[in-house]
Amino acid sequence: MNLVPLHPQADTTRPQRIRWVVPAGAVPAAGRPAALPAPLAGMLAEGVLTAVVVEPDAVVTDLAPGRRWTDDGPRVRTALHAALSRGWQGEATTGADRDAALRSSVQRLLDGPVGDVARSHGGHIELVDVRDGQVRVRLAGACDGCPASRLTLRHRIEAELRRYHPHLAGVVAVQPAGRVSRT
């Protein structure tokens, strides 16, 4: 198992809460997960944890009253390592919040690794809209009309988004003339 580095940060105002700092991109978009990876879901079901909330760079866990981090902390860390090492699965949010979480993930990719690749080639990818699980982007600069743009949309954006957003309907490029091409 490839361990994802975790750094626990105590919450001085809430002793039952630990914020586990993780590398960028290790967790889905921020929100209260509707479904958790099995190791963490089991800890909620057992009553070890009372809440798990995902932040862009951390997983926040609340230990149940009467429990102590010195006793349960190693088990929580192991569960987080297992969940992150397999690739976090599960929806970040439910209902109408899904599109907001998806939008956040897309923007993170476009501001970060995917956008960096596009910019390195003189291009730009702009987020146009996210609705009902469909992501609409506009390709500009060298990306507009580039033969590799379909691969970028499919393998660099869509594949990464599907890791955290199984409800993703697809990623489409909106052409300047108003045409839509599906990846």
Rank of each mutant, 00 (worst) to 15 (best):
A82T: 09
L40H: 05
W20P: 02
A173H: 01
V27W: 03
W20A: 01
A58R: 03
G42H: 09
A96G: 06
L36E: 11
T61W: 09
A100N: 14
G47N: 13
A10C: 06
T70L: 13
A38N: 02
A159G: 06
D57S: 12
D129L: 07
H155F: 10
T70G: 15
P39E: 06
V54Y: 02
M1Y: 08
P147H: 00
R138N: 00
G25S: 03
V48R: 09
P56V: 01
V60N: 01
V53H: 14
R156H: 12
E160F: 11
Q16H: 14
V137L: 02
P147S: 01
R150K: 14
D57E: 15
V4I: 14
L109W: 07
A173V: 01
P23S: 03
P166V: 10
R131W: 09
T93I: 12
L109S: 09
A101Y: 05
D71Y: 09
D116N: 13
R136G: 05
H165N: 05
I18D: 07
G66P: 15
Q134P: 09
V180D: 04
L161W: 10
H121Q: 15
A92E: 13
H81V: 10
G145I: 03
E55Q: 14
G122Q: 03
P176G: 00
A30T: 10
A118L: 06
V76E: 08
R32F: 06
G47C: 12
S149T: 12
P23V: 02
R154T: 14
G170H: 08
T183V: 07
Y164D: 00
R32P: 03
A100W: 14
T93S: 15
G73P: 04
P33V: 06
G123K: 00
P33L: 08
R119V: 07
P8D: 02
P15K: 04
R156P: 00
V106G: 05
T94R: 13
M43R: 11
R19K: 11
D132P: 02
T152Y: 04
P113I: 11
D57I: 10
N2A: 09
M43G: 00
R86E: 15
L3G: 10
L6N: 02
L168K: 04
S104K: 04
V52C: 10
R162I: 10
P56M: 02
Q134Y: 13
T93K: 15
R77C: 12
I18A: 10
A29K: 05
R163H: 07
D111W: 04
A177T: 13
R108M: 05
L102G: 08
A29C: 08
I157Q: 12
G122T: 05
T183S: 02
T50Y: 05
H121D: 15
R19Q: 11
R154H: 15
C143S: 01
E126N: 02
W88R: 04
T93G: 14
V27G: 03
D129I: 04
Q89I: 11
A79F: 03
L80H: 08
L102T: 10
A82K: 05
R150A: 11
L102K: 09
G90P: 08
W88H: 07
A118W: 01
P33G: 07
N2L: 08
G170P: 09
D111Y: 01
L80S: 09
A96C: 05
A10M: 07
D132W: 01
G122V: 02
A140P: 00
P39C: 09
R162V: 13
T12S: 15
G95K: 15
T183H: 02
R19M: 09
V174K: 03
L139W: 00
W69M: 09
L109G: 07
A35S: 06
